[in-house]
Design a protein around this nucleic acid. Structure first.
Lengths: 239, 239
DNA sequence: CACTCGAAATATGTCGGAGTAAATAAGGAG
DNA sequence: CTCCTTATTTACTCCGACATATTTCGAGTG
């Protein structure tokens, strides 16, 4: 690699850049579970960084369950089950290269489980502030399409507002992961072709049900919304 | 504090011990969101450790979204929404002291959403190996009660086996979090009083439904199992 | 010959200090 | 009063040495 500084974006620290590089390498399969990384001194020298910076990067990966180090034995990649795949940063690393189709499928399945239930709870517990956020998010989605970053941000805001309206902390944390996944997949869809369907009506149906406090309706509307999004993604990946 | 070595368990590194201490302090509210920690040099000296060890601990907390540090501004505790509360280690820190009742409630709500759906999928996709693991886990639960660590481990194994049988990676990762939560809450129930209900029959009903491929039955059985567990926990906390 | 115990080798873990870069705050020029 | 420059504080990075934990290999013993 060239100078280390070239590979890190603005604001990102050196150890963060190293963690990003190693993380994407692990998620992409360049280092497989069970593999033992080169020794600290050797690897740090290869990356042209100090041992301290390298070690701090390894601590980050260790905290996310990707690797584990032991004296004399070295640092080895842990089995996939130990990976914190719902960590937003890990999720980003997973989608940095070509995302694993099977993993995307399992994320959609999780969405299909969590979000309709969340919509039901949101319909029962939402307050005026929540509804206001959803309304403006919908308006922003109409103004900018999903082809723009602003449009995708509005989409994320809408889904986040629903999860926030449930008042459930654990669901809110999942929201970070799920919205990250949604972001990556919508971006992925755009990469392939123009979005074949107008997503607004589906979102409006969810919103209307939440406004009127109709839990079952909100759950069902959200369910069909996810089904349609899944279809779009599938056809984009297949084509 | 006394010698640093006294506060770390076997196998746990020094920076891991520091991360554990700071993590529990943050989760317990000793350091509130927005608070700025003392400078590296001062805090490291206060903890009687080197800056390297302290910094590596901070990297761990940063990776889990608990804190963020910037030059000149210092290291500050992030708002709760940024915390990776589903990280198994963070979950452990949350239950190290007196767990927040509202948080426990939200975890049960997440369980009530995810596990019935997982049981439904497991009933449709399980193979013989999955069933075998569930069967032995049930037998172990019968042999040791939930008052013993072996019994709680068997309980975890049973729930893990269900999530594993779904073949869904994202659900499997959630399993680590949820089983950790289940573990902590069962332990918490024991702390208060003897378990008032025999949990075996509920588990057997779930198992039978999964064996016979009855998705709806598995989901419903799991749903009532969680309801009962929630009641027990609630009465234990209230008492 | 097999087996146990112990010493050496090796990689991670810990340490303290020096120097760099970045962000805020203070001060001066316009 | 505003804007730009400067100064200081703090985290960030690097370095080299020492400590500690495991594995491995060898010597001693039954």
């Amino acid at each position: 690699m060239a100078k280390p500084g070239e590979e890190r974006g603005p604001g990102r620290r050196l150890h963060g850049a190293i963690a990003h590089r190693l993380g994407t390498d692990i998620l992409s399969g360049k280092y497989a579970p069970g593999d033992v990384l080169s020794g600290e001194v050797a690897f740090a020298e290869e990356l042209q960084v100090s041992r301290s910076a390298y070690r701090e990067a390894i601590q980050v990966l260790t905290a996310k369950g990707l690797v584990a180090s032991r004296p004399k034995a070295g640092t080895r990649v842990l089995p996939r089950e130990r990976w914190n795949l719902l960590d937003p940063e890990v999720l980003g690393w997973a989608f940095a290269g070509e995302p694993d189709i099977e993993f995307v499928r399992s994320l959609f399945e999780l969405r299909a489980i969590v979000e309709p239930a969340a919509a039901r709870l949101a319909a029962q517990r939402r307050d005026k502030a929540d509804l206001k956020i959803m309304k403006t998010a919908l308006a922003d989605m109409r103004r900018h399409t999903l082809t723009t970053e602003a449009g995708r941000a509005a989409d994320r805001d809408f889904h986040n507002a629903i999860l926030h309206a449930t008042g459930n902390q654990a669901l809110m944390v999942l929201s970070a992961s799920i919205s990250a996944a949604v972001n990556w997949t919508t971006q992925f869809k755009q990469r392939a072709r123009a979005l074949p369907r107008n997503p607004i009506p589906d979102h409006v149906r969810v919103y209307d049900a939440i406004v009127s406090g109709d839990g079952d309706g909100a759950a069902e509307a959200m369910n069909s919304l996810i089904d349609l999004a899944l279809e779009d993604t599938r056809s984009a990946m297949a084509g």
